[in-house]
């Protein structure tokens, strides 16, 4: 930062020009540090580059890290320098030369930090718009959908068409399930997506708040009860990825994890066919596909009604309560 431009105070005890030394060392160390962060560390930045969104986050983290490096080096260098050279000499009980302020330094500092901060905000916004929301959950009406095709058809999907693949992520205490509306609406405990195809995750919850975190895909979206939360991703590498719950959801939050898989498009299509067949028996028992589910107002069968069971809601709130009081 700009502190090193401080003009020497009147109380300089030696002929050493601290400002010039500090500025030089700072610039040299910063250049080395920035190059190391950007070029050596940058390609290995988390969360990796397995999807367009993850890659944009890795780039973003690299840029922020590169900008942060001179700041960290500057402050540490300055305090280190102060402790090395500006210590009280033994027996010296006098005060140092007073310095109440320095308009030039203060103005430079304020202008410099403001410029960095505003530039970061602009850069962050650009990085948010470009990769379609950067993998973050955008609520029911996503705004940032650069390059993402619309959800044109709810019942069919083919690769490369102007129709995005939809995967519903359902959080419940304490497991994730995944529903594929465009392949007959089957639901499964496995998450599989095709490579190089835009995917729209519709994240919702059946009970409390969870958070769907597909780490290597760079996707994180809270699963809220009664709310659809959309996040986009385009995976670019095939292989396994971790899915974790990222919002404290009760006793088994810590073990609410899964392994997902990115497959080739043909492999994915074959998988949907087999899974739809395997799950056919249970698919017809599922409620019709919807963006949110309200399990407290289920249409239950005769037997359950005769037993006085009014819904799978735990009976805390009376199901006869009006929906909009």
């Amino acid at each position: 930062m700009a502190t090193e431009a401080l003009t020497p105070g009147s109380g300089a005890r030696s002929g050493r020009n601290d400002a010039a030394w500090l500025l030089t060392i700072w610039i040299v160390l910063s250049i080395i540090g920035c190059l190391l962060v950007a070029l050596v560390w940058g390609p290995h930045m988390p969360p990796g580059r397995a999807s367009v969104q993850a890659a944009s986050q890795a780039t973003d983290i690299t840029v922020l890290g590169t900008i942060a490096t001179p700041v960290v080096i500057g402050v540490l260098l300055y305090f280190g320098w102060a402790l090395a050279f500006w210590r009280q000499q033994p027996g010296d009980e006098t005060d140092a030369a007073p310095l109440h302020g320095n308009v030039k330094v203060q103005t430079t500092w304020i202008a410099g930090t403001s410029a960095i901060v505003l530039a970061l905000a602009v850069y962050g916004t650009v990085e948010l718009i470009n990769p379609a929301g950067a993998g973050a959950g955008q609520g029911p009406q996503p705004v940032f959908r650069n390059g993402m095709p619309p959800a044109a058809s709810a019942t069919s999907w083919a690769p490369g068409t102007n129709n995005i693949l939809q995967v519903q992520v359902i959080g419940q205490q304490w497991a994730w399930t995944f529903r594929y509306p465009q392949f007959g609406g089957f639901e499964t405990t496995q998450l599989v997506i095709p490579v190089n195809q835009p995917v729209q995750f519709n994240v919702t919850s059946l009970d409390v708040i969870h958070s769907f975190w597909a780490y290597t895909l760079g996707v994180k979206a809270d699963a809220n009860p009664g709310v659809n939360n959309v996040a986009y991703t385009t995976a670019t590498v095939t292989g396994d990825f971790q899915v974790r719950c990222d919002e404290l959801c009760g006793i088994w939050h810590g073990s609410m994890y899964d392994t997902g898989q990115v497959m080739s498009v043909s492999g994915f299509l074959a998988w949907t066919k087999t899974t739809a067949a395997t799950m056919a028996g249970v698919t017809k028992m599922l409620p019709p596909y919807a963006l949110t589910y309200d399990p407290t107002t289920l249409n239950l069968g005769k037997v359950n009604a005769a037993l006085g069971l009014t819904g799978a809601g735990g009976g805390y709130y009376n199901p006869a309560d009006p929906e909009q009081p």
């Binding site: 401080l6 300055y78 402790l83 210590r87 009280q88 500092w109």
Partner: peptide
């Protein structure tokens, strides 16, 4: 950042008692 500026300015050519 102002807080850091204030501290660093105060440290400038000080007689630091550690």
């Amino acid at each position: 950042g102002f807080i850091f500026l204030v501290a660093m300015g105060t440290f400038w050519k000080a007689k630091i008692r550690l």
